[in-house]
Amino acid sequence: MNGSPFALLANNSVTAVMFKVMAALIPGIIAHAWFFGPGIWVSLLLCTVFAIGVEALILLMRGLPLKPFLSDGSVLVTAWLLALSLPTLAPWWLYAVGIIFAVLVAKQFYGGLGQNLFNPAMVGYAALIISFPVYMTQWPAPVGLADHSPTLLEAFDLVFAGQGSISPDAFTSATVLDTWKTQVKLGKPVEDILAQPMFGWGGGKGQEFVALMYLLGGLLMLSSRLITWHVPVAFLAGLAITAGGLHLLEPARHAGVLFHLLSGGAMLGAFFIATDPVTAASTPLGKLIYAGLAGFLTAIIRGFGGYPDGVAFAVLIANVCVPFIDAYTQPRVFGHRKAGK
């Protein structure tokens, strides 16, 4: 027997939510393909296929129905976010391992949809960067800066047949965050570093535009009320304030705010990764604390840590704190006394 309400909001389902998130990713993906070549299509396709395969297998083993859980779309969002976080043109098994960590370990080991403590895509990313750091730092150089930009066919060839036919040096380079870090350590003057063509005008050539497209997608999600403003604003503010402070203190070592906001996974993290409702804090104040913490940690890891980008680790650490944050940020309930009175 079901009680009231008998009316339900129309066209409202987990599937709808997930597909809207994926739609909001599309501008960023197109920009990515435009600036870094068609490799992204290969990694998106691979991650999607692997993710559906792993999810279906686990659902079968757990004796759960396939249709509702596969069609909820959550595994696709995880797959896409992981694909967008990984370098393209890496060997196929790298994506497979990442998906296994994301879907099997981070999601299904914890009980599946809605039960996971950690952001699945970020768990996959973290597992890979710890296990295979070399592959994880070989990113395709922006189109126009590389000696050679692989075509779609060549991309498939690279991913499946390995990198024998074309030398990776021909099309890959370190990311701007990585380059900044190593060159600052070597004592290169900041002006010289930023003068290199790969740094573009803000956050790395091509990347800055991709980041803006993620921002656009994020604003679309905000306007359609898929997410609230709290997480992205607090994340970007946490990142900007911390990075800005460090830059003011030591401009020779720490890059500026704009560079931090537009490079690496900052925008993707602020709007698409930290906002994952399952693993994020849920109260308004909690979201501010959680995302602010993630943004702060991102800047700290970028500035002092051993890894070039800090979004994944920052989000995972913030995920750990979520139950605590939620417990202490419960909003005042209607009719309860206002605090301090």
Binding site: M1, N2, G3, G63, L64, P65, P68
Partner: peptide, 12 residues
């Protein structure tokens, strides 16, 4: 008393 809602997906 209101009963425990029967709603969760059944295992196949």
């Amino acid at each position: 008393k209101w009963r425990y809602p029967v709603h969760m997906m059944k295992r196949e």
